[in-house]
């Protein structure tokens, strides 16, 4: 399952070389296989324990087991009830014949619960502006490094803006990613005004004809009103300098996050009008079901998933793949 990264972005010529990434992925057999096979035994043991749903006939016990599997994946009560409700309705209508059919239907319903909006990333502007936001420790800076690397591989010139002027050494961290990717990083002193560095970054991007500007911001809890207002201001500064920008405003959510992820997404959506979500740290044992809850309840597309600390550990999102990962083949027969 090789992804053509040129398809992940809007605004990349179709004949763009997809060399390195495709080679890496061919060798590793795609992200889903990677996630499944590359895992240590401990993870497999942990996953199977909970994905085993015994199936012989439709009864309360079966629905409860499926409910538990969803709750265990952090899908949350509301979305779980909706999925199991749809599945029960299908079963009552007689469209499900056996365990295999149940699993297929469950995956289909789950995939359909994701927001159906475009999951591609819009870089068809010059310069295109991507604003990264999220709570502390969700992987904003790392994700920026990865996106920049992919863009560079596709022949685009990214420019990074160190908008996290708060956390100790955040600027150094982004600078290090810039060095690894081989792109420019616009930075100010720590403690400076994020609006000012963003303004300078956009100016530099236009002067140097960079294709894509990716703006890092300080991690902030969605409950910190002042910091959320600061983010609104950063967005206004961007729009003022380049009308219509940012073209993408992406929220990073840690896959291990529980139901608080929903509140985070809601608050950030209200403050800066998100265009999509990146689910990070999908290489752990957390199933990342919060992605489904966020996408379903807030109508936000999941655009990318982060699967590790390497530059290439970033994958485009596919609802069917994700549903398959939530309920792997062990579901439906005892393992």
């Amino acid at each position: 399952m090789t992804h053509n990264w040129a398809d992940v972005f809007v605004g990349i010529e179709q004949n763009a070389m997809v060399r390195a990434v495709a080679e890496v992925e061919d060798a590793q057999g795609g992200w889903l296989t990677q996630l499944r096979d590359g895992l240590s035994k401990s993870r497999k043991a942990l996953q199977q324990q909970f994905s085993a749903v015994l199936f012989d006939r439709f009864n309360e016990d079966l629905w409860e087991r499926i409910e538990e599997a969803l709750i265990y994946a952090d899908v949350g009560v509301e979305t779980t009830i909706s999925i199991v409700g749809s599945l029960e309705a299908e079963a009552n209508a007689g469209t499900i014949k056996d365990a295999k059919g149940l699993l297929a239907k469950l995956r289909e319903i789950t995939a359909n619960h994701f927001c159906q909006a475009d999951t591609r990333i819009d870089v068809a502007h010059s310069p295109a502006v991507i604003l990264m936001v999220g709570v502390n420790g969700t992987g904003k800076t790392t994700t920026i490094g990865k996106i920049a690397w992919h863009l560079k591989e596709l022949g685009k010139e990214p420019l990074l803006v160190a908008g996290d002027t708060f956390r100790a050494a955040a600027i150094e961290q982004l600078t290090e990613w810039g060095r690894r990717v081989g792109c420019e990083v616009v930075r100010h002193e720590r403690g400076g005004d994020p609006g000012a560095v963003v303004y300078d970054g956009l100016e530099a991007a236009q002067a140097r004809k960079a294709d894509v500007v990716i703006i890092d911001t300080a991690g902030r809890l969605h409950t910190q009103v002042n910091l959320m207002k600061e983010l609104e201001k950063v967005r206004r500064v961007i729009d003022k300098r380049i009308p219509g920008a940012p073209h993408e405003c992406l929220l990073t959510i840690d896959a291990t996050t529980g139901q608080n992820g929903l509140i985070q997404a809601r608050m950030f959506k209200e403050a800066v009008n998100l265009s999509g979500v990146v689910i990070t740290k999908m290489d752990g044992t957390a199933k990342g079901g919060i992605a489904l809850a966020v996408s379903h309840e807030l109508d936000l597309p999941i655009k990318l998933i982060g699967t590790g600390e390497k530059l290439e550990s970033l994958q485009p999102f596919d609802p069917a793949d994700f549903a398959a990962l939530l309920f792997d083949d062990s579901l439906g027969h005892r393992v």
Binding site: L46, I71, Y72, A73, D74, V135, G137, D254, T256, T257, G258, Q259, N260, G261, Q264, G284, T285, A286, K287, G289, I290
Partner: peptide, 12 residues
Amino acid sequence: LDAMTGQDAVNV
């Protein structure tokens, strides 16, 4: 441990 961790906290 992040207070926002979900069900996976137990595995971790």
